[in-house]
Design a protein around this nucleic acid. Structure first.
Length: 297
RNA sequence: GGUGAUGUAGCUCAGUUGGUAGAGCAAAGGACUGAAAAUCCUUGUGUCGGGGGUUCGAUUCCCUCCAUCACCA
């Protein structure tokens, strides 16, 4: 029996993760490590459904407002940063809560990534530029020429995957496949994974209602102020891109709101697909706090 | 009450010179190890309003009923 326990709370957007995590953390007298790839940015507030001030006061949170949209941050960096924080916090706490909807971020903490040497930024810039100019065919040709074996195995229509594979091949001289060891991190603490789930219809009406609330709270104003940063990675985000396109005159405000809701629903579906694959996750209704607490004790 | 139009997928509609039907939107399922709220792949879900007639065969033609809409009273 390991002495420390990490309570991991995952689930789709708008299912009620924040409220559950706070109640669990309060009950255990501990802190919350957020695993949300957008709530880390201090410039994004309304559109990311961050915990509000009162909630942040009730329980100490980490990785909320910890970064700026002007910085580049990614899942691997998060995984390293979060894990070292977890080790530190376990010196004071028996329990910790890790809560968030970014599946890859959670995976970065729990399983880790294979070690792949850093590659210079210029390589990715070069690839991105050529992709923009010549399209995906150019990436496919490069990949086919440089690493035909892995090219055959990967998702050939996916520009991000092609660019990642190419930057590793160019930067290290080795195929990205050669770094894949499939080794998972071993932790000195116990992990309890809880997935929060609601009937699909209920989840979707919650998403729609929350989008209306965000719009009423000034989401369009927030996005307008961030327009200049719209090409930053942090703003490749549901809730902002739709408004930038509206500002560009691609459609009217009503259509923007419709797309905000639709894209949030689709995002929730993708999250569910990701989290459902993990057979260790225990699925619970977010309204049943008592059952959730029983799982932990 | 009269005249006309419409009734096909969850929605808006197309179509079948008679051989049981297809687009857009919405939706569903999936992949995913360094951009992950990203990126990518797959999928048409249907008593063609009800009933009857003609026909080898009707969603299509004819009759009738129902519903909706418009206009006239």
């Amino acid at each position: 029996m390991k002495e420390h326990k990490l309570i991991v709370i995952v689930g789709p957007t708008a299912v009620g993760k924040t409220a559950v995590a706070i109640q669990v953390a309060e009950h255990l007298g501990t802190e919350i490590i957020s695993a949300d790839s957008r709530q880390i940015y201090r410039e994004l507030t309304i559109g990311t459904a961050k915990p509000d001030e009162a909630e942040l006061k009730r329980v100490p949170h980490h990785f909320i407002d910890s970064h700026s949209i002007k910085e580049d941050y990614d899942a691997a960096s998060y995984g390293r940063d979060a894990l070292s924080l977890i080790h530190r916090l376990f010196e004071q706490h028996k329990f910790l809560v890790l809560c968030g909807g970014s599946g890859l971020y959670v995976k970065a903490v729990l399983e880790g990534f294979d070690e792949i040497p850093d590659v210079p930024d210029e390589i990715r810039e070069h690839l991105t530029k050529n992709f923009e100019q010549h399209g995906i065919v150019w990436l496919q040709e490069q990949m086919c020429a440089l690493d035909p074996e892995h090219f055959a195995a990967l998702d050939q229509q996916n520009p991000h995957r092609l660019m990642r594979a190419l930057e590793v091949k160019i930067g290290t001289g080795q195929s990205i496949a050669s770094f894949r060891k499939q080794a998972k991190l071993q932790h000195p603490f116990e992990v309890i994974k809880i997935g929060l789930e609601l009937p699909r219809e209920e989840l979707y009406s919650r998403i729609d209602a929350r989008m209306d609330q965000m719009v009423a709270a000034g989401l369009f104003d927030e996005a307008t102020q961030l327009y200049a940063y719209r090409h930053h990675n942090a703003l490749q985000t549901v809730g902002y891109q739709e408004i930038f396109d509206y500002m560009d005159g691609k459609y009217d405000r009503e259509e923007a709101v419709r797309l905000l809701k639709r894209n949030s629903r689709r995002y929730a579906k993708r999250q569910l697909t990701w989290f459902k694959r993990d057979e260790e996750t225990l699925w619970m209704n977010p309204g049943n706090i008592q059952a959730i607490l029983n799982l932990i004790n």
